[in-house]
């Protein structure tokens, strides 16, 4: 039987370059992004659907939307 693999998208933050401004958290419609202790943005993989709003908003362009196996 053929098994179908569902491709999901998710936001990934390059935490080393993140300035923790929180622009991503402001625009996330699912509250999937939060700024961890004022150091960097953290994505909740359970909530993120990879819509890309955060990546578009990020002034430092440190968020990428990547495909993940679901």
């Amino acid at each position: 039987m053929e098994t179908k693999t569902r491709v999901k998208r998710r936001a990934f933050v390059r935490t080393d370059d993140c300035v923790a401004c929180g622009c991503c958290a402001r625009v996330c419609p699912l509250s999937a992004v939060q700024v961890w202790r004022g150091v960097y943005a953290k994505v909740d993989p359970e909530r993120c659907v990879g819509c890309g709003k955060c990546a578009k908003e990020c002034p430092a362009s440190v968020i990428e939307i990547q495909e993940v196996q679901g």
Partner: peptide, 16 residues
């Protein structure tokens, strides 16, 4: 980008 200032804002860098 609109909020590019946030990237090099001295206050933001200091608080981080």
């Amino acid at each position: 980008k609109p909020r590019s200032w946030c990237v090099y804002c001295p206050m933001g860098t200091m608080t981080q």
